[in-house]
């Protein structure tokens, strides 16, 4: 029995000589990375071109490796972050910040080619992180769907506030 199974193993292993190899020869051939690949982190803008980040600190709070550091702007009424810093030498690309973000500002992209010769070069500041587009969520504007009704004002009636989307009307 052992002899038969050994010979069979040898034969099937030999046949692998004629199989296609699985290797992707990386620097020349790029691997396919799905849109959900968790790579380099970006900060996105809403469709109107405004920064999405509202300095809620949820990403910094949820980050298991404490690599996100941000500070709300000191200007009254401005909720964009004054600085937003991600230390990629600590980041583990878990994607929890993206899940926590209520405004879809912070997103992970299918890009992993970010090696540097010095660790300090792996600290990305806001100008490195912020892109001019909307990222993976093309037409989402937090301020259009957020908002609470207070006394004398229903949802979406205040200045610069859009009426809320009917969630049941979003069915495909």
């Amino acid at each position: 029995m052992y002899i038969y199974s050994s010979l069979r193993t040898l034969w099937f292993t030999f046949l692998h000589l004629f199989h296609k190899t699985e290797t992707i020869q990386y620097p020349e051939q790029k691997p396919y990375l799905s849109p959900r690949f968790r790579g380099r982190i970006i900060l996105t803008r809403d469709p109107d071109g405004e920064e999405r980040c509202v300095s809620c600190y949820l990403c910094a709070a949820v980050c298991p490796s404490d690599c996100i550091s941000l500070q709300k702007s000191s200007i009254e009424g401005d909720w964009t972050p004054e600085h937003f810093r991600i230390n990629f030498s600590r980041c583990i690309f878990c994607g929890l910040c993206e899940e926590a973000c209520p405004t879809s500002a912070i997103q992970l992209t299918p890009d992993f080619e970010m090696s540097e010769y010095r660790r300090s070069d792996l600290v990305y500041e806001k100008e490195h992180l912020l892109i001019s587009g909307t990222g993976k969520v093309p037409d989402y504007n937090f301020y259009r769907v957020a908002g609470v009704s207070v006394r004398g004002k229903a949802k979406g009636e205040a200045l610069n506030e859009a009426p809320p989307v009917d969630a049941r009307g979003l069915m495909p």
Binding site: H16, L17, K20, T21, E22, T23, Q25
Partner: peptide, 10 residues
């Protein structure tokens, strides 16, 4: 090299 081919590598 041969071990690679037999394991579907290069």
């Amino acid at each position: 090299r041969l071990l690679g081919f037999w394991q579907d590598r290069l």
